[in-house]
Design a binder for these strands. Structure first.
Lengths: 220, 220
DNA sequence: AATTAGCGTTTCAATAAGTGAAATACAGAT
DNA sequence: ATCTGTATTTCACTTATTGAAACGCTAATT
């Protein structure tokens, strides 16, 4: 078990994660986050800096261009979107309603990263990349980490009148990466139907980054 | 200065870059790309895998969720979009036309990641996140790496009739990260005007990830 | 069928490389 | 003037990384 890991690299990546999580950290904070001595953290952060994965300014360390670049590449290529599309497809199949994948964008907004339109002739419509305010939307609450114990959020007639949005978090570890949501014309859905869909969405959302158990194990 | 780096980490990040660059690599390819011995590459890739930065399937290694996650975070926070917005602003200022930042999306499409509308009352209009086919569009050619020596691409009446698109690549090293484009109603622009704008766009695009020398230095 | 070529993987001894406590310097708060 | 927290450097210790070599495997090649 121990020989599969490379401690130095693990630590560096941990540090990178800490920097990206917080957006901006001081050396001491990062070191505490990653449980490293200041000197080690400093050395590793410098390596990350030299490779463009973090940038340093007066206030501390911040995510670097390389992260953005690789992230954009990966995000584009497939990954999240393609993984989510399966889930979106299934949700449309089961509900007939329009389904969306949202990620946080800048400044209190999120964007629709993937869209799968519903099959009802009266349905909610949006487009990939549309920006929505996080405040007051179901997806927004989810992305803000304010998902109640049930695992999903229902917002009736929030930002958009006449529609009910049901969203659940796509998690990576304990971070919310994206929100999966179903948006339904309010007149068509009862409270209990909404809850049923909520559980559906939550289940699909949970499966996106934690793929269902497969036979291919990491037996090593 | 050289001792500020941590070789193991550098190598791991190099490997990560190789994986993300190609989208999917075999161990041997990655090892060659990073100029590492197979055994070292394997060990490092396993660490990256264990931390979620790469995933492994039958076909090889691919970018992992962590990359997507951190990338999305960083990308949202600011970085590419906010950096590009300066350039977009300047282009609108100089041309009066709508300007866009495009990144490759999945399956032969790209999306508008940032938009700055022109000031003319008759102007091209689109929205953030709109998906466009890469094939036949100026941005598409740029994103596909098919930018001619001039450094920009002009497409007249391509996907959308009546409009002329002028795009240039946003590079990171030798990779195309995004495309910066200006879209103009064709009737308003001559061939030579298009070329002038082309050079403008190319210059702005070049500056986005290779910021121009500024007075605000990182004096360290 | 036998052979070659390439890949993924494991092993292991050599040593290169990372480690962290301690010391230094600095800045702000008490 | 003292204290607390930070960023940084140094250095002896030794752990953890390294890469050649060997292995088993699959897919072309002869």
């Amino acid at each position: 078990m121990a020989d599969t890991s490379t401690r130095t690299v693990e630590r560096a990546l941990l540090l990178l994660g800490a920097v990206c999580d917080r957006g901006r950290v001081s050396l001491a904070e990062a070191a505490r986050d990653a449980e490293l001595s200041a000197s080690t953290a400093l050395r590793l952060l410098r390596t990350l800096e030299a490779t463009g994965f973090v940038r340093k300014d007066d206030a501390g360390y911040r995510p670097g261009m390389r992260v953005v670049q690789l992230g954009a590449q990966a995000l584009s290529h497939e990954s999240l979107v393609s993984l989510a599309e399966d889930a979106l497809e299934r949700l449309v199949g089961k509900t007939g309603e329009s389904t969306y994948l949202n990620v946080p964008s800048h400044d209190g907004h999120g964007i629709y990263l993937a869209v799968k339109e519903g099959t009802h002739s009266v349905r909610h419509t949006s487009w990939v990349g549309r920006s929505i305010p996080l405040d007051g939307s179901a997806a927004g609450q989810v992305l803000a980490g304010r998902t109640p114990g049930a695992g999903y959020v229902i917002v009736r007639n929030g930002i958009e009148p006449d529609v009910t949005a049901i969203a659940a978090p796509v998690m990576t570890g304990d971070r919310v990466t994206a929100a999966l949501s179903v948006v339904v014309p309010s007149y068509r859905i009862s409270e209990s139907q909404a809850k049923t869909i909520g559980m559906l969405v939550a289940a699909e959302a949970a499966g996106i980054l934690n793929p269902a158990p497969m036979s291919t194990g990491d037996t090593a």
